[in-house]
């Protein structure tokens, strides 16, 4: 009898929260992570198993659901390099090479566990559809499926805080549900202007045992840009937006 009762309780927890609009929730998560158009500074830290670190500082701008660009400010070896993403298209501009070259989402311009899709993250709702939502009290688990084959991860399991509508953890999976990496969202901070979001994103991966990469956010604020700032021709001039 006890077993049946426990199973019923368990099933109640496991039943998808049909009453909830998963897509609307995901869009709210996106908006809480950052304004639709904004600028921010980020520090990327790759941490090796022995504790050694390599750091990069980036200035990032985003507009709408599918435009994001970043320029490296430090270290000196990377300064002036910039990246641009327009939907599924990504480019990397190296001042020495002098022209933007196309890159793919699974590559990484900084090495470490973050790939280009992580660094040039678009709104989750722009790239994924919500297949299922599970609720456990104030915590939600969203099962996301990539809208197209060109998205870096075929499936995401997004664990979210239902009250703040912010992600706590995201598991990135292949089509065969193999775990590629886990992204942890930490240290929720008030950046001003109504932006309250995790200030630290950390990731590790079973493919890079012992390594982890960290992204720290600063000066996240809403700002509008002209579309022309998100073009190949403008990439060498991204610094002028600061």
């Amino acid at each position: 009898m006890t077993k049946i009762f426990m199973a019923m309780i368990a099933l109640l927890y496991a039943i998808p929260a049909y009453a909830m609009d998963g897509t609307a929730f995901l869009k709210q998560v996106d908006r809480n992570l950052n304004p639709e158009s904004y600028e921010s500074y980020r520090k990327l830290i790759n941490v090796e198993p022995d504790g050694r670190k390599k750091e990069y500082t980036l200035f990032t701008v985003k507009k709408g659901v599918d435009k994001v660009a970043s320029i490296f400010l430090a270290p000196a070896s990377e300064k002036g390099r910039s990246t641009l993403r327009l939907g599924d298209n990504m480019w990397f501009y190296i001042p020495n090479v002098g022209k933007p070259i196309r890159i793919t989402s699974l590559q990484s311009v900084v090495g470490g566990v973050f790939n280009n899709a992580d660094i040039l993250q678009l709104d989750y709702a722009a790239e994924y559809t919500v297949e299922k939502v599970e609720q456990n009290g104030n915590e939600y688990l969203l099962y996301l499926k990539a809208k197209t084959k060109t998205v870096a991860y075929d499936r995401l399991k997004l664990y979210a805080d239902g009250k703040r509508k912010l992600p706590a953890k995201i598991e990135c999976l292949t089509e065969a549900s193999m775990l590629i990496k886990t992204i942890y969202f930490k240290e929720v901070k008030d950046f001003g202007g109504g932006v309250v979001r995790p200030a630290v994103i950390e990731t590790d991966s079973p493919l890079y045992k012992g390594y982890k990469s960290v992204m720290i956010f600063a000066k996240v604020k809403a700002r509008d840009f002209r579309d022309e700032a998100f073009t190949l021709t403008f990439m060498p001039n991204l610094e002028s937006l600061r």
């Binding site: 200035f59 400010l73 664990y159 706590a168 942890y184 930490k186 630290v200 960290v214 600063a218």
Partner: peptide
Amino acid sequence: FIGIPSVAIAEEYTFDISET
């Protein structure tokens, strides 16, 4: 249940704003 990490688990990372 245990899959959701505590927000309190955080290592200290520094980001000197003067760099920006």
